[in-house]
């Protein structure tokens, strides 16, 4: 997608705010990121793109991260799958990925958590 040289991460989440912030963070770490808003979209992405890592919520609006894992494992053994259940865990996962990423981390992952919580409080 954006950066043909970079590893591609699929971020699958039905939470628009969390998904967008995490995806932007990973892009700033140099990854190519595909955002899926549902299990169905994630499955389509797996079929259309070469994905290296999947970061998926355990619960999505049309299924679970476990459904997605099962689907992926039926297609590929090489894709790394990381299931996350909470915002804090997701931010930690993103931070860990960024540490291994091609670019320097733009900010500490805790700031992702703080930012998302702050925005949720504004509503």
């Amino acid at each position: 997608m954006q950066n043909e040289e970079a590893e591609t991460i699929l971020v699958a989440s039905s939470d628009a705010l969390q998904r967008s912030v995490i995806a932007k963070y990973l892009r700033e770490c140099g990854y190519s990121v595909i955002e899926a808003t549902s299990l169905e979209e994630a499955k389509v992405a797996i079929g259309h793109y070469e994905i290296d890592v999947v970061v998926s919520d355990t619960e999505m609006r049309d299924g679970t991260g476990f459904d997605l894992s099962t689907h992926i494992r039926s297609k590929s053994r090489s894709i790394e799958i990381i299931l996350t259940q909470s915002l804090v865990k997701t931010a930690q996962v993103a931070g860990d990925l960024c540490e291994q990423g091609p670019l320097e981390q733009p900010y500490h992952p805790q700031r992702l958590v703080d930012e998302i919580k702050r925005l949720r409080a504004l509503r």
Partner: peptide, 19 residues
């Protein structure tokens, strides 16, 4: 800077966060 959503409902939800 691009933010993607797959429905109007999701977009409105996001906009309600003052984004």
């Amino acid at each position: 800077d691009v933010v993607e959503v797959s429905s109007a409902d999701e977009a409105i939800e996001l906009l309600r966060y003052n984004v």
